[in-house]
Simulated scan of single mutants.
Amino acid sequence: MNITDKNRNLVFWVLQFVGWGFINCLSLLLLKNIGLKFVIYSIIFGFTISVSVTSMLRWYIKHYINFESFKSRDLIKIGISFLLACFLFGSLNYLFGYIYAKYGPSISQEHIDMFKMYDGFWIQAINSLFMIGAWTVTYFVIKLLLKLNKDRIERLELNTNLKQAQLNTLKGQINPHFMFNSLNNIRGLMLEDVDKSREMLTKLSEMLRYSLTKNNVNGITVEEELEMVGNYIALSKIQFEERLKFEKEIEKEALQLQIPPMIIQLLVENAAKHGISKLKHGGKIKLKVSIENNGLQIKVINSGKLEISKGSTQLGLKNIKQRLKLLYGEKATFALNEKEGEVIAEINIPQA
């Protein structure tokens, strides 16, 4: 239980005791002519019954009503629990009146007749519906106000985190080591193949333009992202040459689906940097994009072992997790596992 939950519980119990205490103390004014003993008993038992019944109702609502995914059956549950609480509230109050009349201190016949007039079934039913109904409405109004305030705070935090995630994305995109290596490799390539080196410079400039222009958007098509990945692989092959083999399986239906920018490129870069570069004879990176269970599934599989270098910030992986959570909540998933000599990075993104 966090601090917020403790504060909410404290506020609930303060309001519970103060509210019911005030209502039951009104009997001091209404019943002051009947007798002090009856007033005291009435306050004690009335307060105990009110607090107990409404606390049980609150416990049921908290444990069995899901307000995050509210459905029609939850409304039925609330209605049934409300009626049961009214029945229990009325029954216990009636029982108190019966026990007091039979075993409590004597009161005048005039007051006994008055109690009988106000102690009928319908009077008790209306009183129970009114009291429990007023409590229930107040409870839900307070709960709604707290939820609206919580949502407002979460939206503010989301906007702040999203800006930070965009900044981290930019940091992860413009990798100084990759830029330095690419420029050095292109310079060496100029001595062998000028046309090829010119083509690689074009791809590098396209990567820079892409990373800068797409930084402020939350969604691009898979097709656009694959162009970026192709440029990255082409530049990486200057360094790795035949040590890097790249394969892809892309379902045509997935090409126009929306994904966060740079998310596939970061997975492929991570596979090359932490997988292929550490293998003496190189290895293979395989990219699979498909539609599974009405959602988009992205898999990047590379040769090697799942090892996290000491001192590594894992900025790319943290970036992916953070953006998925910010954009899709708990609906999107990211997993990184090793299986049979291969590292598998898998992302599942829900589609509307």
Rank of each mutant, 00 (worst) to 15 (best):
E269M: 02
I132Y: 03
N184R: 04
A352N: 15
K102T: 13
L170E: 05
Y98V: 11
R8L: 15
L235M: 00
E199P: 02
I344R: 04
S55V: 06
L244T: 00
K171V: 15
W122Y: 13
P260H: 01
K6S: 11
K339M: 09
V18F: 09
A101I: 10
I65R: 05
L212K: 15
S81M: 15
D195N: 06
K62W: 12
K325R: 10
A254H: 05
K102L: 14
G304T: 05
K71E: 06
I78P: 05
R8Y: 15
G295F: 01
T160G: 15
L83K: 11
T136G: 03
I76E: 09
K147L: 12
V222N: 02
L279F: 09
L212V: 15
L191P: 03
S312R: 08
I76T: 12
N7P: 11
S42L: 05
H177M: 10
V289T: 06
Q239H: 13
S290W: 08
V11I: 15
N218R: 10
F12M: 08
Y118G: 07
N293A: 11
L212Q: 14
V217H: 10
E224C: 06
Q239G: 09
Q314L: 08
G133K: 03
L324H: 00
N231F: 01
E110T: 11
Q351N: 13
A101Y: 04
P350I: 06
E307W: 09
V300W: 01
E242L: 09
I43W: 03
I264G: 02
Q258N: 15
L287V: 11
G90K: 05
K237Q: 04
T136D: 08
I220T: 01
F45W: 09
V300I: 08
H274T: 02
L75E: 01
M190G: 00
